[in-house]
Design a binder for these strands. Structure first.
Length: 573
RNA sequence: UGGGCGAUCGUCUAAUGGUAGGACAGUGCCCUUUGGAGGCACUUGUCUAGGUUCGAAUCCUAGUCGCCCAGCCA
């Protein structure tokens, strides 16, 4: 089992039962025909530590770990760390944290950099076999010699150096004799191949850079193509899943393995995850962070797993989303509503309710005995009786939501307005009597009367009300900052930009709204980091990492579905 | 205009020669002490044109459209 706890195991096997896809079919067939003999199914999740994992990676992680698990196999976490200029320990750490948070535990923790010595030996082997050569052409010249999509390339003038000369030069490349960019080691394949990846691909480049793990030990670094397949092979990976853009690399992946005569790992490609209104490119996410369009990799508006965690999303929901959305070889874009649906569905079942007034409006109950207060009993989660109940203080002066009162109610508005009766959730029926306005004419308080016989929320005479609103007693309320998040981008496809534009043009200027002084029921004072709640009638919220006992901060994970907002919008149109 | 990959409701995905199904979104109704949740119902789809076949989303042929590839990135 690759899962960390029994809870996620249950979910995992449930997902596994329903997850039938072409990758599953391929592996099942390989197992049936004993393609790898007695060997276990072995997979790997191979991130480059050059950024934080995002929800697109979650799909790959669920596939890599989930498929291996289904067939009783194992999964390694392998850092594809062959480019010291872009990789950092911070990313190595965050990736491990995020994979575990998602609910998976790897069999072996590996690094491509651990294989540098072996890769180097194999390069020597290929040189000796006349299958690799040192090229002195500049990067620019190599590009020119490569030809184009429609024209074949031509051989480098250095292509036919002797084995001895190649060996000598390559060893000296490794020993640091030559400056960056002066020489590369190339595979000798076919400069006329219609597949550009086969036109004598670069195997090694000279990079006098400090690597986050090997330090200054190496000044030559293998390219992805030369490192990835062999790393798979070393780990006896049987099924190496990757995204579609690597399809053209598969012949090269196989070429290295065949020339070296090593364990025949096989690469299988699947489609990358795309989600509407969401940017899933590590390079561009890095730009958002570096240029401070967001407050870091874990800014809750980001699509990174760290951000989803901070925002209150659950690993269970992300896993359910990943498997439900399926896997194929088509390039599609999944509606963000799908993700939100699975998250609401999960939170609705598991999370306790609380009352919080985001935009407070004072409500005075004129006939409530002066100075009196009482406690009303409230279910912690109506979906789950086992969650129990709690006592919430009530009094003659409470906060209600500004949105829940209209002096002139529009059609189909069921909430409070002058003369109308509504229910205060779990408390009493009230009828609005009058409003108090300030000098500018805006409403600062509403006066009402309550029906003492309706305690608990029902009137003994069977009288019905059209609406129930939430509230917090002013004397008992605690204050908190609340952060409301909206889509980071305005367009379904953030990359849909005009000529010369950038994704930044599509940034939503209102993606973050901060409410400095929301009023919460007192039980919330005990909330701890990452605790999740449904604020009734409002949405799902969690305690943010910026929160302190003196200054509580809550993030809105997602709003509740809002039928009234829909009606209102439709009537405006 | 070289090569590779792909095309099924608005979106994602099943059906592997035999009733085109599910989920999300949408719409309507019911229910409701959250206009939440839940229940019921409805709408919409096999890229096109030929062919094989008793029968084609599936096989064949030709086209159309989309994505990927010319890093010493991964």
């Amino acid at each position: 089992m690759t899962n960390r706890n029994s809870e996620s195991q249950g979910i995992q096997s449930q997902e596994a039962r329903t997850a039938s896809n072409f990758l599953h079919d391929i592996i099942a067939e390989d197992v049936r025909t004993r393609k790898y003999g007695d060997a276990l199914v072995q997979t790997r999740f191979p991130p480059e530590p050059n950024g934080y994992l995002h929800i697109g990676h979650a799909k790959a992680i669920c596939l890599d770990f989930g498929l291996a698990d289904e067939f009783g196999g194992k999964t390694n976490l392998r850092f594809d760390d062959t480019n010291p200029e872009k990789e950092e320990q911070e990313y190595v750490d965050s990736i491990q944290r995020d994979v575990r948070w998602l609910g998976f535990e790897w069999d072996r923790l590996c690094y491509a950099s651990d294989y540098f010595p072996q890769l180097y030996e194999w390069a020597l082997e290929l040189i000796k076999a006349g299958k690799a050569y040192v090229d002195d052409l500049s990067a620019d010249q190599i590009r020119q010699y490569r030809g184009t999509l429609t024209e074949p390339g031509k051989d480098s003038p250095f292509r036919n150096r002797t084995v001895e000369e190649n060996l000598d030069l390559f060893v000296r490349m490794k020993s640091g004799e030559f400056p960056d960019g002066s020489r590369v080691l190339r595979a000798k394949i076919d400069m006329t191949s219609p597949n550009l990846n086969m036109r004598d691909p670069v195997m090694y480049r000279i990079l006098h850079a400090t690597h986050h793990r090997t330090g200054d030990e190496w000044c030559i670094y293998p390219m992805y193509d030369y490192a990835h397949g062999q790393s798979d092979s070393i780990e006896h990976v049987t099924h190496s899943m990757c995204t579609l853009e690597f399809t053209d690399h598969q012949p090269l992946y196989r070429w290295y393995i065949e020339q070296l005569g090593i364990f025949p790992s096989q690469q299988i490609e699947f489609d990358r995850l795309n989600i509407t209104y969401t940017l899933l490119s590590k390079r561009k996410l890095l730009q958002l962070v570096q240029e401070k369009h967001v407050h870091g990799w874990d800014d809750p508006r980001m699509p990174t797993l760290s951000a989803f965690r901070r925002r209150g999303f659950t690993p269970e929901a992300i896993r359910t989303f990943s498997t439900s959305t399926g896997v194929s070889r088509t390039n599609g874009i999944t509606d963000i509503e799908m993700l939100e649906h699975f998250q609401r569905d999960d939170l609705n079942r598991r999370v306790n309710r609380a009352m919080a007034v985001l935009r407070p409006l004072k409500l005075v109950i004129d006939n409530y005995p002066a100075g009196q207060e009482e406690f009303v009993e409230v279910a912690n989660n109506p979906e789950d009786p086992a969650a129990g109940t709690r006592q919430v203080p009530f009094s003659g002066e409470i906060y209600m939501e500004q949105d829940d009162f209209r002096e002139v109610p529009p059609p189909k508005y069921y909430r409070l307005s002058p003369g109308k009766e509504v229910r205060l959730r779990n408390a009493y029926f009230i009828t609005a009597q009058s409003v108090v306005k300030d000098a500018t004419g805006s409403i600062v308080a509403v006066h009402c009367t309550y029906d003492p016989a309706s305690r608990g929320g029902n009137s003994p005479d069977g009288r019905k009300v059209k609406s129930t609103i939430h509230w917090v007693s002013t004397a008992h309320a605690i204050s908190a900052e609340i952060r409301l998040y909206d889509k980071l981008f305005l367009k379904p496809d953030p990359n849909d930009v005009e000529e010369g534009g950038s994704v930044l043009d599509n940034l939503n200027p209102n993606s973050l709204e901060v409410l400095a002084d929301a009023k919460l029921e007192p039980s919330l004072a005990n909330a701890k980091l990452e605790d999740r709640f449904q604020f009734e009638r409002v949405g799902y919220f969690c305690v943010d990492s910026d929160s302190t006992p003196d200054h509580m901060v809550f993030n809105r994970t997602l709003p509740l579905k809002d039928t009234w907002a829909k009606i209102e919008k439709k009537s405006e149109a």
